[in-house]
Simulated assay, not measured.
Amino acid sequence: MPAVSAELGTSKAVMALQKTLSLLLLSLLTLLGLGLVQPSYGLATYEGFQREHVDSTGTGGTNLYCNTMMQRRGMTRPRCKQFNTFIHEDIGTINNICNAPNIQCKDHRMNCHAGVVRVTDCRNTGGSSPYNCRYGARASTRRVVIACEGNPLVPVHFDR
C-alpha cells in the first residue's frame, strides 16, 4: 500500500507543478501583451542598429571607408546593400537622440526622434555580387531620424 500512496503524492506534485507553470506562462504572455516586459529581441535590434550604423572611432568620408566598412559589417552579403549611413558619434550621444520629442517615422509610427550628427552616407555605385560591391561616400553633418524602443529608450532603426 505505501507504493500506491507514493505514486499518488508524486502525481499530485506533477499536476501542481504543471498548473503553476501554466499560470506563469499565462502571466508572462499577459505582461508581454501589455508591453510591461520587453522581449529579448529588443536587445538584438539595438545591437543590429549599432552594427549597421555606428562608427564612433572613424571619421569616414571616403569611398575606401565605405567599401571597407560595408564589407566588414556584413552588408555586402548575400548581395550589396544599396544605401547605408554610418554615424560618427559616441553611442551615448546617439542614445540621447531618443530623448528628443517624438516625431512620425516613415512607417507612420510615432517612435522616431531627430538629431544632428556627423555621418558618412555610403551609396552603391556598381556591382551586385558580394565580391563586387562598390560604394561612393558622402560625409556631412546633418539631421537624422531614428526609431527608438525599450525602457530606457534605445535606437533600433535608422529611419532617414
Score class of each variant (00 low, 15 high):
D90M: 12
N102D: 11
H108R: 09
H53N: 04
R142N: 03
G126H: 07
C80T: 13
H108N: 08
L23P: 00
P39W: 02
I94T: 04
D121T: 00
G150I: 00
L31H: 08
Y46N: 14
C105T: 08
S11T: 02
E89P: 01
P152Q: 14
C98F: 11
N84F: 08
Y135F: 05
Q18Y: 00
G61W: 03
V4K: 13
Y65S: 11
V117L: 14
G33V: 03
G61L: 04
A114F: 05
Q18H: 06
T76C: 07
D90R: 09
T62A: 15
C98D: 06
K12Y: 06
Y135T: 05
T57S: 08
N111L: 15
V37G: 04
N63F: 00
G33Y: 08
R123P: 02
S140C: 07
L17W: 05
A147C: 01
T57E: 02
Q104R: 12
P155W: 07
C133T: 06
G33N: 10
G150K: 11
L23N: 08
A13V: 02
V116A: 11
D107V: 01
G126Q: 06
P78M: 05
P39A: 15
H108G: 01
F158Y: 13
R143W: 01
C80P: 03
T30A: 04
N95I: 02
L24A: 12
G61H: 02
N84S: 12
M75K: 09
G74N: 03
M15I: 00
C148H: 03
S56H: 03
P152Y: 06
L24R: 11
Q18I: 00
M69N: 12
C66W: 03
E149Q: 15
C66K: 13
T141R: 15
N96S: 12
T141Y: 04
L64G: 15
H108P: 08
T45W: 06
L29F: 10
A137E: 06
G35S: 08
V119L: 09
G48W: 01
F83M: 12
R79A: 15
G61Q: 05
T141N: 07
G61I: 00
N95Y: 05
T45P: 01
C66Q: 13
M75G: 00
G61P: 00
C80N: 07
